[in-house]
Amino acid sequence: MSTTETAAQDIPKVAVEITVNGQSYRREVEPRTLLVQFIREELRLTGTHIGCDTTYCGACTILLDGEPVKSCTMLAAQADGGEVLTVEGLEKDGELHPLQTAFSEHHGLQCGYCTPGMLMSSLALLQNNASPTEKQIRKGIQGNLCRCTGYHNIFKAIEAAAAEMRED
């Protein structure tokens, strides 16, 4: 606790190679660089949001090697060698992902701040469980806060997307 702060310029950088949305990026970063900063500031992929300082809100959720992670609470150095999927990676060949379409059709968003994180947590849920019950959907987004919608339209959107994805 009583240690003095080390000056940032005296600290050796860490080389990282991280695949984001299928493309590999090599960078030298300060050790304290958070994965979310790497994504937003180094790669300029600003779809991933920062909504809190306390690992509470889930707006920064991305998938790392298929698992949902709060990218604000992980160092870029820890993600070295990993595969990241962000909200920008959901769209394929100009077509929105069924989750994105369903959120739009079912009014699963108002201000949209929580939406990237909601989409990534929903995707993690549906990849493990193609037919979730309502309770499983609620548990699936338990780590994501929304200050606008009251969640009901988000549940509806996830249910609709699940049905759509089962048909494909």
Partner: peptide, 25 residues
């Protein structure tokens, strides 16, 4: 440093400061 889900939260809030992290991951 293991998962960082306690430690990084404290470091971000500057409730704790470290000179070095040893990543066990």
């Amino acid at each position: 440093l293991a998962g960082g889900q306690s430690l990084l939260v404290l470091l971000k809030a500057r409730f704790d400061t470290v000179t070095d992290l040893v990543d066990l991951g």
